[in-house]
């Protein structure tokens, strides 16, 4: 049952070198830089996003993800979820309004996979970049690189998938859209949605907690994915795999790395999910095809290269 969580609102990513990172996320992915703060963090967004920012970069000694935040319908929803999160047994922390610029208070909690998540309801809305919402043109001029339209989801690696599903489904109102089941019946991957999208956040089982696999950005078409691949070669950017298609969610995709080794994805297409849909199930024996539909084989890197 939906509980008032709307969508991924933001992700804060640690980078080793801010200048290199900004160049990557801005010039290559085509995100729009919207602000910086006195901690040196840089705020960006995809051009179709109505909220002021969705990606925050923070310079640190070790790359990875600091936290991922979900935007909720109202402050009442955030209060309600705060209570239920604590009841579920999560460590809950209140992050005051303004800690992220132009963002209201956030409630932060640690999932059983070890990742930090947040729920919040208030963030300055600056509208779609370059087009607004009054007689808008199809797209704005002046977009760079891959022209990423929005921050779409994260894939995260960690332990305790069952407890994490309980938390996301029962407390936060996500649904299980797709799963991968091992021969012994254990779920080793779960794709969760709070919307009609194939996934808003996904988890793969991994012994070490709190690992970051990728942050993903949405493109309009397969042609855009191919152009993204061209841009990666033009800029000699580290490619992981692709362009290809996923079996899971059926999106058309390419994976690559930012200059600090954090994996990014840009993708187009993919399945949708309604609340009355049964989860889609893949057998772990078919994992190669589930992840890379054309190669039908896993690459070692996909499973073990994490930040």
């Amino acid at each position: 049952m939906r509980k008032g969580v709307m969508r991924p609102g933001h992700v804060q990513i640690r980078v080793l070198d801010m200048d290199e990172a900004v160049k990557h996320y801005k010039d290559l992915l085509g995100l729009i830089e919207v602000d910086r703060d006195d901690q040196g963090r840089v705020y960006l967004k995809g051009w179709t996003e109505v909220d002021k920012f969705s990606v925050v970069l923070r310079q640190a000694d070790e790359p990875g993800m600091d936290f991922m935040g979900f935007k909720c319908l109202s402050e009442e929803v955030v209060d309600q979820l705060r209570g239920e999160l604590a009841e579920f047994g999560c460590e809950v922390e209140d992050v005051p309004e303004g800690e992220l610029k132009d963002c209201g208070r956030r409630v932060r909690f640690i999932a059983p996979t070890g990742h930090a998540f947040e729920v919040f309801a208030t963030k300055k809305q600056t509208g779609k970049w370059g087009v607004g919402n009054h007689n808008p043109e199809a797209w704005p001029m002046g977009l760079e690189g891959m022209k990423a339209t929005r921050f779409d989801h994260c894939l995260l690696y960690g332990p305790n998938l069952d407890e994490t599903l309980d938390l996301f489904r029962d407390v936060l109102g996500f649904e299980l859209a797709e799963q991968v089941i091992a021969p012994d019946g254990k779920r080793v991957a779960q794709f969760l949605t709070a919307s009609m999208k194939a996934h808003d956040v996904a988890f793969i089982h991994h012994e070490e907690p709190a690992k970051f696999h990728h942050a993903s950005f949405f493109l309009e078409t397969w042609q855009d994915v191919l152009k993204a691949a061209d841009l990666l070669s033009m800029t000699d950017t580290s490619i992981d795999i692709g362009p290809t298609r996923h079996g899971l969610t059926h999106g058309q995709t390419i994976y690559f790395f930012d200059p600090s080794g954090n994996r990014n994805e840009v993708f187009a297409g993919g399945d949708y999910h309604y609340p009355d849909h049964e989860p889609v199930t893949w057998d772990a024996e078919e994992l190669g095809k589930a992840i890379f539909y054309h190669d039908r084989a896993l690459n070692e890197r996909f499973l073990s290269v994490l930040t």
Partner: peptide, 12 residues
């Protein structure tokens, strides 16, 4: 040498 992220991030 195993190739991972190529960005000093993954330790591979």
């Amino acid at each position: 040498v195993p190739v991972g992220c190529r960005g000093g991030g993954c330790g591979f």
